[in-house]
Simulated assay, not measured.
Amino acid sequence: MIPYDERIKFRDLSKKRVNTRFAKSKILNFYSSNNNIGNYTPVLGIQKLLNQEYDVWCAHQQVDWDFVNTNYEKVIIGGAGLFHLSFENFWKDFTRECKIPAIVWGVGGIFPKDRSLKASVNNKVLKTALRKCDLINLRDDLSADYVDLPNIHISQCPTISYVDGVQNNRQKPKGVLYSSHEELLNQKEKNIVNKFLVDNVDFMFTDNIQYQFCGMNRILDKYLKSKLIVTTRLHGAIIAYGLGIPYLAISFDEKVDEFYRLYGNGFLVKSLEDLNNADVEYILNNAQDQIPDLTLVHEFSNEVLIWTRDN
């Protein structure tokens, strides 16, 4: 009997035994299989935009480049935070080993305000790798400036395409959802945010992580039931934006500030010192669902569709 498991899973060849691997698609998508749903919604968005389900390979795992080069015509790298330092070996190996056309889509850097935390891959490593790519789509100017290459397309994460239309399932949303990046906050910071929430609102909680008995669809249902998203996660803001739900982003990483600057549709608190000045009652009373702008995402997906058809 197959055990009950709600987690979204892809056809991840990095998790299959060598003698059982075979390609089902002509394009391979490198991604992160960490159960943070922010690693899954971009891949689902890419598949929706291109109207095809692709084989995937977790970039955390050793890549069989001979298999990849032999069995696929092209490679998509993305989306989510694949510039994180933990992927440095992947980017080095990609530069050295990948022999087929590749693009980067919906990827971004890591810029924590706490400089003691791990940040992005060395920019020279990334710049060398990205020079090999036919198309580059990054999610913000910070990431683009970090690699400093011409012809970079900047748009929202393809997550917003995946959740587009899902907001039609909302029924009398009320209350607040707190989407927490647990690894990014120390205990003192968690206590401050929790006290702010307890003092001001009734709220639900999610860490955006898939578990066996709480998969991505159950997590997204919490978003749909909420009138406001309070988030310390970038993908808390991205999902809220894609669903047209107002958000209050508490920034511990410059990428959150950058998302708000570029795309809006919410409120931003840049530090815990400013948190108590946030007027939650005003925000809740004035929170109105908004239609996300998918223009830039579709613009890049059209370029990718042409790329997929080129020989």
Rank of each mutant, 00 (worst) to 15 (best):
I160G: 06
S271N: 14
I100W: 09
S116D: 08
R218I: 07
T70A: 09
F203L: 09
D279V: 14
N89Y: 07
T206C: 06
R261K: 15
E299L: 11
S251K: 10
G236A: 11
K113S: 05
C98P: 01
P101A: 07
Y4Q: 10
K118H: 09
L49S: 04
F300E: 09
N169P: 03
V104G: 03
N71D: 04
S271M: 12
E88Y: 06
S271K: 10
N29I: 15
Y72D: 04
D310A: 15
G108F: 01
I37Q: 01
L177S: 06
F213W: 07
Y40V: 15
G242M: 02
A102Y: 00
K255N: 04
W307Y: 13
V75D: 00
E73S: 09
V280G: 05
V121Q: 00
S25D: 02
I27P: 02
G175E: 08
V107Q: 01
N191P: 02
N311P: 02
I283K: 05
R233W: 00
L149A: 14
T95W: 07
F259C: 02
D12S: 13
S116L: 13
K48E: 11
N277I: 06
I219H: 04
L185T: 02
N286S: 14
G236Y: 00
S251L: 07
H60F: 14
L126M: 03
D140T: 07
C157M: 01
R170I: 14
D202Q: 14
N137W: 04
L130Y: 09
W57A: 15
S116H: 08
K195C: 06
Y40D: 04
Y4E: 11
V256D: 00
L50Y: 02
Q288E: 10
I239Y: 03
I250D: 04
N286Y: 09
Y263W: 15
N285Q: 15
V201F: 08
I219E: 05
G175T: 11
F111V: 03
R11Q: 11
T308K: 12
Q187S: 11
D148Q: 14
I27Y: 07
L50N: 03
L184T: 12
Y247Q: 07
K16T: 13
M204Q: 09
K174M: 14
E303Y: 13
T231M: 05
E254V: 05
D145G: 12
N69F: 07
Y260L: 04
N311L: 14
I8T: 15
T295W: 05
K118P: 11
V68S: 03
L294D: 02
I2D: 11
F30E: 03
L272Q: 06
N36K: 04
K15N: 15
V121Y: 02
T231S: 10
M1Q: 09
V43Y: 03
D202F: 12
N302I: 13
V18H: 11
Q288N: 14
N186V: 13
K92G: 05
N36F: 08
Q167T: 08
F90G: 03
V18N: 15
D140C: 13
E303S: 12
V121E: 01
P3W: 00
F300G: 09
K9E: 15
V297I: 14
L135D: 03
I76K: 00
L305F: 12
K15I: 15
L44P: 07
Q52K: 08
I103Y: 03
G175I: 12
V256E: 00
D253A: 05
V198M: 13
S86C: 11
K172A: 15
S14L: 10
K172M: 10
K190P: 01
L268N: 10
K26W: 10
Y263P: 03
D199N: 11
F205D: 01
A129D: 00
K124H: 10
